[in-house]
Design a protein around this nucleic acid. Structure first.
Lengths: 196, 196, 196, 196
DNA sequence: GAGTAACCGAGACGGTACGTCCTGTCTTGGA
DNA sequence: TCCAAGACAGGACGTACCGTCTCGGTTACTC
């Protein structure tokens, strides 16, 4: 029930590190969040940092993920189409902003650094995908979406294009583009009678 | 008529570099393709290498892109649905293999290294997207696909999910999954009368 | 009658530490006798260790000194020349062995770590020098040695060369070399007619 | 004849390093001469430093050795006794000063760091011992010293005691003590009638 | 053909970050 | 009251790679 660690200072150190990392990420993106810089800014020694995280990418993922957890609240418009359209728009806007840059750097770093991948997934993907899955299940119960399509597949189709554009920059992430994507994708995901 | 470059050695040097890089990529992925290693393996000095490319990622993009150019020939099944379904399957299979790993590393590196992004786009995205766009246009002419959806949007919806999975590894890239994606996506992209 | 110390654990802790340190020294020399390693091996916490010794070198000096106290018993051949020659030979042999290595490391560490120097002196030098001094005094009483030379100076002249060789390794520490040193030192370096 | 290195910058870098190290040694002794500090002070990167020397002790040995090469010129009083007595006095005075501290640290470090030992020997021992050997040979030719004693043994007997005292600090390094040592060593320790 | 550029290999170099190691202090909770 | 257990800051270590630079030899055009 309670934090029973015999050494509660761990918590203070972790907090300091995450807080310092957030500042560094905000200032200079992932490249600025070197372990040395985090150590200097947080007052936590490198050795301690490496006791808590396997790599700097993992730290950054946790720091940025926690900070961004509530940045994109799930919409509730009453309809699956409305919810999903809005959510695609929100995620697109998030990716388009300065946070999107950091997110992309983080995702990129997770590819290179296998130790960080689980952190990235935990702090960015899992919760969000679960929320979308719940939303999808509700819509399914209401008969709004095609039962043949799984929540995971739907999520990938709706948000994969945004990731694609974020990573390669081959197309903009404007609200119009977001709507174009969600509109085209939803026509295949929703039941016919739910289509616009 | 003849090669009239005043310094044809450039060409040999470029070739050597690209060839060496391909080998290094095949052996140890992008991390193995350090500039020092490329220089050593190719016999081309670092100075010369930096005369031809802005960064190691650019070299790797060009080397890997050229090698993979013909790895995924566009299908021609006679129908838009058939072509696109098959293409999604092929790309998915490519991503799932060992080359997909390198591709992911390359895409990740392009995020970090702005100088390499154009190379990545030229050698991986542009030609392929153009080909899909052409395929899309043909389908459009035949009335198989919805005119409201642009080729770019369609491409992103079909292949973005694969990129998403490749980068995060949150879901497998099997043929079944590829079909699930293309099937669900195409229902929104194709004209009603073309749907399965 | 019984162990009546108010904190008998101290004694046990000291013993454990010294014993553990001896093992570590035997296995890997001074570099292996890390405070963490000593703590782990002895089951005595670092805090407790630092209550008893000022530094790890001090621990090692005490541990190794106690162990080696009786390793080189003073000879008693009946004559000053015989005793001193034999003693130089014994010390040389000791230095030449694997224990000599540890001894050298300890002496070296004492230079760097001022807190350990008294420990080193207590456990290695004082008793031995006192013994030699006693031997010297006996010889003096018997008229065997020059009264103009103090016991300390004689000790330095006889054993300084061994230390010199041990530390720099510029010459071997064989029995022959030991004899050459003691012989020359005991006789003097100059020709008789050149002496003051 | 001339320095024909294809990369003369090596020399500048080496010089900078040695010069910076000398300053650091003068200011804070060997502990101050960390590789990081040397790098910072000299403007030479750590990687380059490690290309030229195997360890910081080696750098310090070379830097300090070169600086001190001429610090103790060999005396020439006309007699072996005079020369050797004076030389022992000079070396003792050198050891007693602040440079002696650094010398002791260097010798101590050479024990711990095998890679540095050759540097120490080259820059401190070899030349000096060779000079003494020459002096010894001259004295031998003049019949001043015993032919049964080698130059090396004589050197060890005369200077070993100084090293011994320098390292352990068990006795002072005053001029009087130096004279006591050289006098006793040159004459021998035993009474004439006790000698073999 | 000899002269003269541009070009190239080789690799040293400064810089930056890495991840590891050990020390000596300090804290906590249990015996 | 004392201790084991071990977290922690601090700081040096030696390594890796980057991208720049300099050197001296070679090549291939020019005259």
């Amino acid at each position: 029930m309670f934090e029973q660690s015999s050494h509660p200072r761990s918590l203070k150190a972790k907090d300091s590190v995450l807080c310092a990392t957030q500042e560094l990420l905000a200032d200079g993106g992932l490249p600025a969040a070197t372990v040395d810089a985090i150590s200097a800014q947080s007052g936590v020694s490198k050795a301690t940092i490496y006791k808590h995280w396997p790599s700097r990418t993992a730290i950054a993922a946790e720091a940025f993920g926690k900070q961004m957890a509530a940045a994109i609240p799930l919409p509730d418009t009453g309809s699956a189409r409305g919810d999903l359209t809005e959510q695609v728009r929100r995620v697109s806007a998030f990716y388009a902003g300065s946070n999107g840059k950091v997110f992309a750097q983080l995702l990129a770093a997770s590819v290179t650094d296998p130790a960080a991948a689980p952190y990235f997934r935990e702090y960015f993907l899992d919760a969000r995908r679960a929320a979308i899955a719940e939303l999808w299940q509700r819509a399914l119960n209401r008969g709004e979406v095609r039962p043949s399509v799984s929540a995971g597949t739907a999520t990938d189709i709706l948000f994969g294009p945004l990731i694609f554009r974020l990573m390669t920059g081959h197309a903009p992430l404007t609200a119009e583009e977001a709507d174009a994507i969600s509109s085209a994708a939803l026509d295949g995901l929703l039941q016919d009678h739910s289509r616009a």
